[in-house]
Design a protein around this nucleic acid. Structure first.
Lengths: 130, 130
DNA sequence: GGTCTGTATTGATATTCATTGATACAAGCT
DNA sequence: AGCTTGTATCAATGAATATCAATACAGACC
């Protein structure tokens, strides 16, 4: 098995070597760019932040959900637009949602942000400052 | 302008609270999305990876530069296209370059990747797995 | 000077993307 | 059943983007 699945940052893998560890091949780059592309929009980044600041829901106690009805009014955008951005974040594998009665709740998929952070961090993160 | 500069992840600040710490306001989100947007393209992510894997040039000894002449042939894209992507990465504040003789060398701006990593990492990065 | 190589810029084109109004769907309520 | 509210999807449009061929620019070398 050379690399049978290249689960770059998949769901459960221990995450890839890191951006600065070695040059990415095309497939790895495509998979990872998907995440950054989703975060590369101010609206989506704010949405992520609003959802993530409720907790990432890793333990199972408080999953840190946010109702769409709390997200939409925070923007000067139409409701379909917010819904669209939430869909993109979900398709990117950053968040998930569940309908409960009339309302839909979103939460950050556990571990994704930390895996991305680990990917960006340089091996010897030494004297960054000054 | 109330908050004098809001240097979200600027150049020298200690970096913002983090994505999951508190909801970002519009300006913070716009500033940060710029970085992720630049990384949200497979070609640029590969370029970044190729440059970053040469070292981030923080100490001052080996800055870890890469000649454009090493980058371009790694892609099935025209030379202007690669040049364009490098320009975007530079405008985003991720890399910088210098011409030396005929060749142009690029390197990763020190600390940027680690600041971004710190921004993404959740406060209590606890049991992500299982 | 002229020429050659490496890199950036320009102009054009095709594609992608963000946004909206209109509409459909889902669930609660009367 | 009808009505109302919350959310998603559809269709259309304008803006942004990736890409290339052609060209300009910079420096080395003759």
């Amino acid at each position: 098995m050379s690399k049978q699945e290249l689960e770059v940052i998949g769901q459960d893998s221990a995450c890839c070597p890191g951006l600065a560890a070695a040059p990415l091949d095309e497939d790895q780059a495509a998979d990872l760019a998907k995440f950054f592309k989703a975060l590369g929009d101010p609206v989506r980044l704010r949405l992520m932040s609003m959802i993530a600041s409720r907790g990432e829901g890793s333990e199972g106690s408080a999953r840190g959900e946010v109702c769409v009805c709390e997200l939409t009014p925070a923007f000067d955008l139409s409701q379909p637009t917010i819904s669209h951005h939430l869909k993109l974040l979900r398709q990117a594998g950053l968040i998930d949602c569940e309908r409960r009665g009339t309302w839909v709740y979103y939460w950050v998929l556990p571990g994704v942000l930390d895996r991305l952070a680990g990917f960006l961090a340089t091996p010897r993160a030494a004297g960054a400052g000054a």
